[in-house]
């Protein structure tokens, strides 16, 4: 415990300015372990995806792909006939990859855009406007975060059915389009933190709330909105239960549901592991790309938001 005094400065100074520091080394080792635990399973996904499904069981102890083979990826993209797939020990189910990808993109983008936009509007009303019953209504919104999703799944399903929207993109999108409790909560928290000065100046100039919201508040909230949008998009991209209930047709089946064909198809059967893992990689790719493109921005926005 001799380095206490340098501690606060530690986080600001460049590391190369310092001599060897054993605490730093331990810290890096621990961090490396955490990174390994986080990332190594992805190697196993890749290794399995590049294996022949029928050979996996016999080579369970091999760290390299068992019978290296691109068949699993071919299955994901629908380039293999059922007979070929079955011969490799894979799933013979048909899959319309590009259609599902498009559906997933559509589903995730529309719900993200809608939820983020409408939730921001509501959050603004909760954070910045004064009206009777505001806190009560907000508590009610918040309480919905506590409702077990399984509870609302069936009634929502019946509602979408009554609207005649089963197996349509609109029906799929509807429950998420107008708000998610989390998005409202998130944006309200941000708006509470925002400086009022600009708004107040605009208000004195006689600007309306609409104009303030669109021309001042929203542009200033670009960073948290981007963060929220990315989080929402990721959540929607991985959504499974609702699309499974509502999106049965080819036009409304999203990737997570479509790739379910690699799970066991018959009772007591084994999954097509290599197909499933290839599918996992392929379906995670768009999110990975998004993250690679905007990751830095998001991390910055977290910092920006936190230090405010």
């Amino acid at each position: 415990m001799t380095t206490i005094d340098t501690r606060p400065a530690d986080s600001r100074r460049r590391p190369q300015k310092k001599p060897f520091n054993w605490r730093r080394t331990i810290a890096w080792v621990l961090l490396a372990v955490a990174i390994a635990v986080s990332v190594l399973p992805f190697y196993w996904v890749l290794r399995t995806a590049l294996s022949t499904n029928g050979s996996l069981a016999a080579n369970s102890a091999s760290l390299l792909p068992a019978d290296f083979n691109l068949g699993a990826f071919k299955r994901v993209f629908g380039l293999q006939t059922a007979e070929e797939a079955i011969a490799e020990g894979g799933s013979g189910a048909s899959i319309n990859f590009w259609q599902y990808l498009w559906n997933s993109l559509l589903f995730s983008s529309i719900t993200t855009a809608g939820a983020v936009f409408f939730s921001s509007m509501a959050a603004y009303a909760f954070a910045r406007l004064r009206w009777k019953g505001r806190d009560g209504v907000f508590s009610l919104f918040l309480a919905t975060m506590l409702v077990p999703p399984i509870f609302t799944a069936l009634p929502n399903f019946l509602l979408v059915k009554n609207l005649g929207l089963l197996n349509s993109m609109l029906g799929l999108v509807l429950p998420y389009l107008f708000m998610t409790p989390f998005a409202v909560f998130f944006m309200r928290q941000f708006f509470l933190n925002m400086s009022r000065e600009v708004e107040e100046a605009a208000m004195l100039d006689g600007a309306r709330h609409w104009r303030i919201f669109f021309q001042i508040v929203m542009p200033n909230a670009a960073a948290p909105i981007a963060t929220l949008a990315l989080l929402t998009f990721m959540g929607q991209w991985n959504e499974y239960f609702w699309p499974l209930l509502v999106g049965t047709s080819e036009e409304s089946r999203v990737l997570t549901v479509g790739l379910g064909v690699f799970k066991s198809q018959s009772p007591q059967g084994a999954p097509d592991w290599s197909g499933l893992m290839a599918a996992t990689l392929v379906s995670a790719t768009p999110v990975l790309i998004l993250f690679a493109l905007f990751g830095k921005k998001i991390v910055n926005s977290i910092g920006f938001n936190g230090t405010k």
Binding site: A93, S94, L158, L166, G260, K263, Q265
Partner: peptide
């Protein structure tokens, strides 16, 4: 023809019956 894996098959049939689909 629609193929759905065993794990999800019966849930979808039952829900479909409730919803008329």
């Amino acid at each position: 023809i629609t193929q759905t894996g065993w794990d999800d098959y019966w849930g979808k049939i039952t829900n479909g019956m409730a919803a008329g689909t």
